[in-house]
Design a protein around this nucleic acid. Structure first.
Lengths: 83, 83, 83, 83
DNA sequence: TCGCCTGATAGTTGCC
DNA sequence: GGCAACTATCAGGCGA
């Protein structure tokens, strides 16, 4: 019966997402553990987070800049539509 | 030299966290993909998220469950737009 | 009567915020106008936004770096508690 | 040289938008301040935001109603085509 | 005009 | 228990 099929499909979706979210939560916990450990070794967590933030901002800016370059090259007809 | 050791340790911390965050971001992307796929199969993402939320709250969310029921009934055209 | 006073105070808060939000919305409209005008002059809006984004990321990173420096100097006892 | 003119025009656009965004950010900060102050006076910020939201919805509804009225009046030939 | 995607906003959780 | 960071939700703008 198609209703059952739909129900199974729905269950599958829910299950897959819940599994992924569980793994994601586990990683978040791992990250917290690393910070805790670092703190135990005398590092200042706030400062570590600041460093990570700067690195993230830098790499975003870099990625954005590369993308902008492509935009320019494309506008100048120096890039194919898409590979 | 102890300075180098400290620098290495710091690098290790940063690297470990960035790796974990990368994996976490990948999982977030996977989750988005599942939602996208579900949407392509005709599911309403907002409602799916409501279901997941209720399952998370699990025990004490009967009110939410009732709201969800209404959502479904409404989706099925079994409830007026608004009372 | 104190109730009236409270009601007046509440009205004042609501009114102030609504006024500020109105001004904020007006600025958002102004920004859209500038983009429209630029588009009319042959600029690509998407590219302009990318440029602005990079500039924002850069200045965030710069601000963050300065803040980090202060954090370090403070940790080294080279900055007063707070001015 | 036209290149310089274009560069100047581009700079002008970027500058104007950044100025407007700065003003917009300042207003957002002002709004936060009002909420903070209200909180200090014993108001619940979450509830205040709910009130503002309702007032916004109400004015949307009112605008809709006015628009509908115009539609009717127009249908009845009691309004000019367009001002 | 509709769907998508980004940026703004509101809610949640962990930390002090 | 308050505060700040992070996450998820939402709305508005944009392109197709």
């Amino acid at each position: 019966m198609s209703k059952s099929i739909a129900a199974d499909q729905l269950k599958s979706i829910i299950k897959r997402i819940e599994k992924l979210e569980e793994e994601k939560a586990a990683l978040a916990a791992d990250i917290r553990d690393v910070f805790s450990e670092a703190k135990g070794n005398g590092y200042d967590v706030k400062t570590l987070k600041q460093v990570l933030k700067i690195r993230r901002l830098d790499s975003s800016a870099r990625a954005e800049a590369e993308s902008l370059l492509e935009t320019y090259l494309h506008a100048l007809g120096m890039l194919p539509e898409v590979a």
